[in-house]
């Protein structure tokens, strides 16, 4: 299996607008790549581009990871949950049978929400469901946008345990966008610092 995904001279943006000239960085297997930077620096745009949701405006990524399950899966800072139950949200993942979906929920400690209406969950619960849903897709590259934004101190600590579990459960590479580089004990980090956006 490839041990790293290299992004070389990457430029990201929307339409014809360049948001960030990111340069080169490496997303290594068994490591967490932290994309850090202030608001507007292009963190989300970079993650969406790596996930294949936006086209690359410059540079290249090699080897290119395909979009979707078993490839690159992106999780929004506030995961979008579709109308219906948590079960429905888990089972729309093309590779997730019921057992895998339940295992992913169990890993995030929210397996008791299986039959609950997804639109009536707390922010923390939504976030866990969103990540569980992504894990159920068994990605090679999991990209998570500002996962600690809506969490309290306990939530953050629990979330970091989950990331450690995800790495040990075989998600090869994880990329996280965040404002500040987290002081993350015991986990290998690879930091990509984005510059302050030009006015």
């Amino acid at each position: 299996m490839t041990t790293a995904i290299d992004a070389v001279d990457v430029v990201v943006g929307y339409g014809s607008k360049v948001v960030a000239d990111v340069g080169s960085f490496r997303m290594q297997v068994d490591r967490i790549t932290v994309v850090a930077g202030p608001n507007g620096s292009g963190k989300t745009t970079l993650l969406k581009t790596v996930a294949g949701l936006l086209p690359l405006m410059g540079g290249h990524i090699a080897p290119r990871v395909h979009q979707g399950p078993a490839g690159a899966v992106f999780v929004h800072s506030t995961p979008y949950l579709f109308a219906g139950t948590v079960r429905h949200n888990m089972q729309i993942v093309s590779r997730a049978d019921e057992q895998r979906a339940r295992e992913a929920l169990h890993m995030l400690g929210v397996d008791d929400l299986w039959g609950r209406d997804a639109r009536h969950l707390s922010t923390g619960q939504r976030q866990r469901i969103g990540i569980a849903r992504a894990l159920a897709a068994q990605p090679r590259l999991l990209l998570i946008d500002e996962p600690e934004g809506g969490l309290d101190a306990e939530g953050i600590s629990s979330w970091r345990r989950i990331v450690a579990q995800a790495l040990s459960a075989g998600i090869p590479a994880i990329v996280i966008a965040t404002h500040d580089v987290p002081a993350w004990d015991g986990l290998p980090l690879n930091v990509v610092q984005l510059p302050v956006p030009r006015k």
Binding site: K48, G52, Q67, G68, V73, H76, P79, F82, V93, A137
Partner: peptide, 12 residues
């Protein structure tokens, strides 16, 4: 986010 979520999760 609705469109992107469906795409990234590999919904046909």
């Amino acid at each position: 986010e609705a469109h992107e979520t469906a795409v990234t999760l590999g919904v046909s």
